[in-house]
């Protein structure tokens, strides 16, 4: 897939609000995926730190064993996510200049997205749920 190589560069001009128009959604998949992958990576990082902190506070042997296993799994997951992001070109730890450029483009895209009218004004869908007393 071609978008894997340069996911975010597709955001050339200011983002058009008519994002359902095909030509305006160019580059969207890479943008969406890299954002979600970054969120995923940050979660994995927090997971490692949280598990390690918990380990230093817990004495119960069974709990320690389980959390140590969790910590190991979390470290493996972190390795896999960062490897995937490097392969897809969403993460450049060995190329700081490239990474900074990418971060700025992502930040700009996020700012543009924040100004978009993505959802209907009224998102109360309570009528479609079985919550009569809500």
């Amino acid at each position: 897939m071609s978008y894997e190589k340069k996911p975010i560069n597709a955001l050339k001009g200011p983002m058009n609000n008519d994002y359902l128009e095909i030509q305006n959604s160019e580059g969207m998949p890479g943008l969406v995926d890299s954002t979600i992958a970054l969120n995923f990576l940050l979660n994995a990082k927090s997971g490692i730190k949280n598990c390690a902190t918990a380990l230093t506070e817990i004495a119960d042997p069974e709990a320690r064993k389980e959390i140590h296993n969790m910590l190991n799994a979390q470290i493996d997951l972190h390795a896999q996510i960062s490897e995937l992001m490097m392969n897809k070109g969403w993460f450049h730890p060995y190329h700081v200049a490239e990474q900074f450029k990418l971060d700025l483009v992502s930040a700009q895209a996020a700012v543009q997205i924040s100004n978009m009218q993505l959802f209907p004004g009224n998102t109360s869908r309570l009528g479609t749920f079985a919550t009569p007393n809500y």
């Binding site: 998949p29 995926d33 979600i36 995937l84």
Partner: peptide, 10 residues
């Protein structure tokens, strides 16, 4: 939401 299937698998 994701498009990439490797990412989805992970």
């Amino acid at each position: 939401v994701v498009f990439d299937q490797d990412l989805k698998a992970l």
